[in-house]
Simulated scan of single mutants.
Amino acid sequence: MKQYDVIIIGGGPAGLSAGIYAARANLSAVLMEMGMTGGLAASTEMIENYPGFENGIGGPELAMQMEKQARRFGLEMVYAYVSGVEKQGDDFIVSADEQNYRARAVIFAAGAKPRYLGVPGEKEFHGRGVSYCATCDGAFFRDKVVAVVGGGDAAVEEALFLTKFASKVYVIHRRDQLRATKYVQKKAQENDKIQFVLNSVVKQINGSELVRSVTVEDVLTGSQSELPVDGVFIYVGHEPSTSMIAHLVERDEQGYVITDEQMRTSCPGLFAAGDVRHKTLRQVVTAVADGAIAAVEVEKYLSQREQ
C-alpha cells in the first residue's frame, strides 16, 4: 500500500492550489482526480474576475497552467475514481480504482456537481439535447435555438457563450429579476440573440429522439406554453460531492462540509477546501485560497503529530 503525508482528493482550483503548496513544502503528496483537472473552472469559457489577467483567461487554460505549476514542484497526480475514505487510527485509507492508499492527512476538495431540475424529460434527453456544460456542448447547437435555465452568473455567462453558436438563446428564470451580477446582466441585455423568459419555470422537456421543446409555466398566472428549442442548458446551482466523507465530518443541511478558518473539519487530519466547504462565496479565487490554507495547515498538523 502506497503511503503519503497527504492525499488531495479533487483536481479543481482548490486541489491544485493545495498540491502546489504541499509539494513546495516537501510533503509527500498525491492528488487524485477522476476526470480532467480544473473542475468547474475548466468548463468555463472565460474567467474575467481572477486577479492578474487584465483581459480574463479561459477556464481550461487557467486549469492547465495550475496543473503544470503543480507538476513542476513535483506533485504526483493519479487519475482515478475515489470510492471511499476511512479513518484508521491517526491515518486515513483512501480507496481508488480498487487500490488502497494510506495518508497521514487528507485534503478533501472534490468540488460540486450540477443540480438537476428534476422534471420529466431531463434524464431521458441527457446527452441528446440536455446539457450542464455550454463550453463542452455549445458547438453542437450551431444555428439552433437553445434555452438556458437559471438566473445566476453561471447561467447568464453561459448564455452569452452560447450566442457564438446558437441563433437564439432563451434565458428562463423563476424570478422577475436575474441573480447575476449587474455587469454580466448588462452584457446579456445588450446581446440581440438573448431573450429573457422571467417569472417562469420549466415543467417538462419534450422531444422524440432529440429535444424539440420545453413546457414553461408562468409562476404568477399558472399558464403554460411551449417553447420550441433544440437544446436545454441547466444552471440551477450545485450540490457538494461530500457523500463519501459524510460519516467522518460535520456537514450543514445542504451537505457542505463545516470547517474553521484553517480548513479543519470535525475529523482531525481531514481538511476541506473549495466548493465542498460551507462558505459565503464560491469562486476560483476563494477555492485557490482555501487550498493554500489547507496545505499550510496540513504541514503544521503533521509537525505537531511528530512532537
Rank of each mutant, 00 (worst) to 15 (best):
I20W: 03
N26W: 05
L27R: 05
L62I: 06
T37I: 14
A63V: 07
A41R: 04
D90Y: 08
L62V: 05
Q65W: 10
L27H: 06
A41I: 11
I47W: 05
E98K: 15
L27C: 06
L40S: 15
Y79S: 07
G12R: 00
P13C: 01
E54R: 15
S28R: 10
V30T: 13
G59M: 07
I57K: 12
P60M: 11
E76Q: 08
V78S: 07
S17N: 03
L31N: 10
D91P: 10
M66Y: 04
Q99G: 00
M66V: 03
E48N: 13
Y21R: 02
S17F: 02
P60V: 11
A25G: 12
L27G: 10
A41Y: 08
Q69H: 15
A23W: 04
I93Q: 05
E67D: 09
Q88H: 10
K87D: 02
G52I: 11
G56D: 01
Y79H: 12
S95T: 15
I47K: 09
L75P: 02
G74W: 02
L16Q: 06
E45D: 14
G39A: 01
V82E: 12
K87N: 01
F53P: 04
N55C: 14
T37V: 13
Q99H: 14
Y81M: 13
V78G: 01
R71E: 12
V30L: 07
Y21A: 01
G38Q: 09
G84N: 12
M66W: 01
F73A: 07
A63Y: 02
A41G: 02
M64H: 12
G39D: 08
I47Q: 03
P60I: 05
V78P: 03
S95D: 12
N100Q: 15
I93K: 10
A14F: 00
A42V: 04
I20C: 04
Y79P: 00
M64V: 03
P13T: 04
E76N: 02
G38M: 09
L62W: 02
Y81F: 09
D91G: 11
A18M: 02
S95Y: 15
G38H: 06
F73D: 01
